[in-house]
């Protein structure tokens, strides 16, 4: 049956390329690992090769590299100020890693590493732990002033503090789920509409004509998904910058 052939979940399956077992942990080199490595190699190679000319007047590739640099630098500077620039390598790495991973996932048959919650959760935890560790190391106990906004009536402080703590704890979840869910849902939707085309066109001439609709939808969704791929990388970066700002300037 044609419907059985289209499984929108199949693209998220992780397949072992090189099985590795350490103790009772399965740490095999998988298609996910492969694409992580591809992201790293591709991005680094692009940035290094694009800037090989080191020209004063940049060519188009060098311009792309410079624009990504200034884009992330401006985002970070706007959100966290000049002192936030010490986190620039981290923020830039996060942005480029997520962006390139998202965009690579748009290529047919390519694995989307950011469509796995564990990956986005690890990246989000990296951000939150950086915020917490840097905040405590830099400001000590004062860092927890983050949870007690100034100018709140004393009677409300316990309630507000509780809300602040909950919102702080939900940050890694919202940060990771937002990216993961966007990528997952987008890719499933694409696959479902693409599946409609296959199913309909298998149903003869009328179905063939009818499949134009899901085809148009799939084309439109592809454009949307490219937007989402960039936007989610940007949102992840902006939120990272804002959280880092909390670590640098914990006072409200």
């Amino acid at each position: 049956m044609a419907a059985d052939k289209v499984d929108p979940i199949h693209q998220f399956h992780i397949t072992k390329i090189l099985p590795i077992q350490v103790g009772h942990w399965d740490v095999s080199f998988t298609n996910s690992s492969l694409f992580m490595a591809v992201v790293v190699i591709l991005t680094t190679a692009f940035l290094v090769m694009a800037t090989s000319g080191r020209s004063v007047v940049p060519g188009r590739w060098q311009l792309v590299a410079e624009m990504s640099y200034s884009f992330v630098a401006n985002t970070l500077r706007d959100a966290a100020g000049k002192s936030g620039m010490k986190f620039f390598p981290l923020v830039f790495s996060l942005f480029m890693f997520v962006l390139v991973a998202n965009l690579l996932g748009m290529i047919p048959y390519f694995f989307t590493i950011t469509s796995h919650i564990i990956v986005t959760f690890c990246l989000a935890m990296l951000v939150i732990l950086t915020v917490v560790i840097y905040g405590i190391w830099k400001h000590g106990f004062h860092f927890f002033g983050l949870f007690v906004p100034s100018g709140v009536p004393a009677a409300l402080i316990p309630l507000v503090t509780m809300i602040e703590v909950i919102s702080f704890l939900s940050r890694p979840i919202s940060l990771s789920v937002r990216l993961f869910a966007n990528m997952l849902a987008g890719h499933i939707t694409l696959k479902v509409f693409a599946g409609f085309i296959v199913t309909l066109s298998a149903a003869g001439a009328v179905g063939m004509a009818g499949s134009i609709l899901p085809l148009a939808m799939a084309v439109a969704l592809t454009a949307l998904e490219f937007l989402v791929a960039f936007l989610q990388a940007y949102v992840f970066t902006v939120l990272t910058c804002m959280y880092l700002n909390d670590a640098i300037h914990p006072g409200h």
């Binding site: 690992s33 790495s93 590493i113 990956v119 690890c122 990246l123 990296l126």
Partner: peptide, 10 residues
């Protein structure tokens, strides 16, 4: 596996 390889690659 994903955590380990993410840690290595990232």
């Amino acid at each position: 596996s994903q955590i380990l390889w993410l840690a290595i690659t990232f």
